[in-house]
Computed example of a mutant assay.
Amino acid sequence: MTPDAREPFVVAHRGASAERMEHTLAAYELALEQGADGVECDVRLTRDGHLVCVHDRTVERTSNGTGLVSEMTLEQLRELDFGGPGRPATVLTLGELITLVLDWRARPTKLFVETKHPVRYGGLVENKVLAELQRFGIASPPSADHSRAVVMSFSATAVWRIRRSAPLLPTVLLGDSSVYLGGGAATTVGATAVGPSVKTLREHPELVDRAAAAGRATYCWTVDDQEDVALCRDLGVSWLATNHPGRTKGWLAAV
């Protein structure tokens, strides 16, 4: 995951989440069908130690249930509907998403896994993520460029844990402060990329060049407007995350 002079690669943010409920199998299948170069997910640990693709601490916003993810078992989560009206769907595990991505034969697709912090299980989340990637044979790539997985976090400590245990696995230090991203945090933890929001990128377009000068790629989130897609392309952003992967691919192809 090195700085790239080509147009940005398109990452489906929680799947094709503008058209399907986020983090559902249907959202990721649609994103792959639309030609996404990568797919992004957030992961949390259940009470019985399973990694599930859920953004929030609670399930209220994205399911028909209530409660904290960390206080529920996988079996309890499976009883909830995460698909919404007309498209019932059970909670998606990280293992199920990895299987989908690796089985997709149309093109190689990267998986971007974001670990959430602070959480009650602390560094166990990163340990579990690495164990799951290892189970599928993608935790120790021959190089960062050939990796099928990327691990991201807003927590510098979480990124450091990954770099210490899997030095060739690409990592993204997410953040919304230009000083934070441009300073020593990414260097200290050895992140291979920085991840500003598109709002930060508009205010500080120099971030991309500063990251490239340090040998780092740029991952920008969440890019849904055509003007912002063009900005990412013009600045040389390596990866952009969007809720509209198909539409974004079309905009980039039309230039």
Rank of each mutant, 00 (worst) to 15 (best):
T115I: 15
I138A: 08
Y121T: 08
H117F: 15
T109R: 13
Y121N: 01
R120S: 09
N127M: 01
N127A: 00
Q134E: 13
N127Y: 00
D103Q: 09
E132S: 07
S140M: 00
E132G: 04
T115S: 15
Y121R: 06
P142M: 08
A131E: 12
T93A: 06
R105P: 14
R105S: 15
A131W: 10
Q134N: 08
G123E: 14
T93S: 12
T109M: 11
S140F: 05
T99L: 09
P142G: 08
V125P: 01
G123W: 11
L133M: 05
P141S: 09
G122D: 08
H117D: 15
T99I: 02
L94Y: 02
V150Y: 01
L130N: 08
R148A: 15
Y121G: 00
N127Q: 02
V151S: 01
P141M: 03
D145N: 04
G123S: 15
N127V: 00
L111R: 00
V125R: 01
R120G: 03
S143E: 07
V113C: 04
N127K: 01
R148I: 07
L124W: 05
D145F: 06
V113E: 04
K110M: 12
L94K: 08
W104A: 09
P142E: 06
V150G: 02
H117Q: 14
S143V: 05
G137Q: 08
T99F: 08
V150C: 03
K116T: 06
T99C: 02
V125I: 14
T115E: 09
A131Q: 11
P118Q: 08
P142T: 10
S140V: 11
A131N: 04
R107C: 15
V101L: 13
R105I: 13
L94H: 07
L133V: 00
G123R: 14
K128F: 06
S143N: 13
A149R: 03
Y121V: 06
G123V: 11
L102Q: 15
E114V: 04
A131I: 05
Q134D: 13
N127D: 02
A106F: 00
A144C: 00
V125N: 04
S143H: 11
E96L: 01
H146R: 14
P118C: 09
E114T: 10
W104R: 05
E96F: 11
L102M: 15
L124A: 10
T115Q: 10
L130C: 07
E96H: 07
L102T: 14
P108M: 10
L111F: 03
V150K: 02
I98S: 13
K128A: 13
F112G: 09
A131T: 06
A131Y: 03
R105G: 07
V113Q: 05
S143A: 12
R120L: 07
S147A: 14
P118L: 07
R120F: 02
P142Y: 10
E126D: 14
V151F: 05
V119N: 04
P141Y: 10
L111C: 01
F112A: 13
Y121K: 02
L130F: 10
I138C: 02
L94D: 02
G95T: 11
V125Q: 06
R148W: 13
L100C: 11
R135A: 05
R107W: 12
E132C: 04
P141T: 07
V119R: 01
L111W: 01
Q134Y: 05
